[in-house]
Computed example of a mutant assay.
Amino acid sequence: MAASFKAILALSMLISPCLSSAAQSCSSYTFSSNKVFSSCTELPHLGASLYYNHTAPTDTISIAFKAPQTSTGWVAWGLNPAGTKMVGSQAIVAFFHSNGSMVAYPTQLDSYAPSMAPGAPSFPVSDLSTEYVNKEMIIFATLGLVGGGSKFSHVWQEGSTVLNDVPKAHSTTGENIQSLGTIDFQ
């Protein structure tokens, strides 16, 4: 019995720091722009996190999407107001432009091989900006929520290549095809 207790205690001491650091990484993160978000969630794939403030009277959310990435890749996060997967999502993509500056813009994911060209989403997007800090790309934006709801399907992604200022296809295996879920902004 004492040996079992000691084994459990030792295991919990090994696991505890991992759980503690994972829980702290989202809620204790400080943005270089000093932006503050009331809610955050560690997304289950690609090491990404989503931070947000929901403003009910105006039916808007201010977000920060953060994901690890090299300076040659891209990241994206988006909502799908009518479905549950990538196709139909209205996304915001960010990467380093060939001129060396970071760029972020909305795009529509209308197929499994979207153009990734800038395009107007079905909801308003404002206050769009991006930055690269500690090998992570961060997208900031304010979105008008469609239909007056608070629960949406969302997708997030990362790709390793940008060619001629166009993000190229992401991997179609592993975590890249699992990066979707539901979020309630309440």
Rank of each mutant, 00 (worst) to 15 (best):
C26T: 07
H97P: 02
H54W: 03
A120R: 12
Q157A: 14
S150L: 11
T41F: 06
A117T: 11
T55W: 06
K135G: 08
T161P: 08
P44Y: 03
Q24M: 13
V146Q: 15
V87D: 06
S171G: 10
P121V: 06
Q69R: 03
Q157W: 15
S38H: 13
F37A: 01
E158G: 14
V36K: 06
Y112A: 13
D165L: 04
A91F: 05
P121A: 01
Q108P: 11
I63R: 05
D59R: 06
C26P: 08
A76W: 04
A23K: 01
T173G: 06
P44Q: 03
T30D: 11
L19A: 07
H154N: 15
Q24W: 15
A3K: 12
I138H: 09
A23L: 04
G78R: 02
T58Y: 06
E158R: 15
S49Q: 10
Y52L: 06
A10P: 05
F31T: 00
A2Q: 12
S12V: 14
P106V: 05
Y132E: 04
V146G: 09
S153G: 09
A3G: 13
S153H: 15
Y132N: 08
S21W: 07
I92M: 11
M137P: 12
H154K: 14
P124L: 07
S16V: 14
C40V: 03
S16G: 14
A120N: 11
G147Q: 09
M137D: 13
I183P: 06
S122T: 10
Y105Q: 08
S32F: 10
G119L: 12
L11W: 13
Y51C: 04
E175W: 11
G144T: 02
N164Q: 15
Y132V: 05
F152S: 08
T58P: 02
P44L: 05
Y29A: 13
S4P: 08
T70C: 00
F37I: 06
D184Y: 04
A64W: 02
I177S: 06
A94S: 15
T182M: 09
T70M: 02
K151R: 14
Q90A: 11
S38R: 11
P81N: 13
Y132H: 12
G174C: 06
Y105K: 08
N53S: 00
F140L: 05
S98C: 07
H97W: 03
K35R: 15
S179Q: 01
S171Y: 03
F5Y: 12
D184F: 00
W156V: 01
C40H: 00
S16Q: 14
S33M: 07
H54S: 00
S150I: 10
L43T: 00
L143P: 01
I177H: 03
I15Q: 10
S171P: 05
P114A: 11
S89R: 10
N34M: 09
S32P: 09
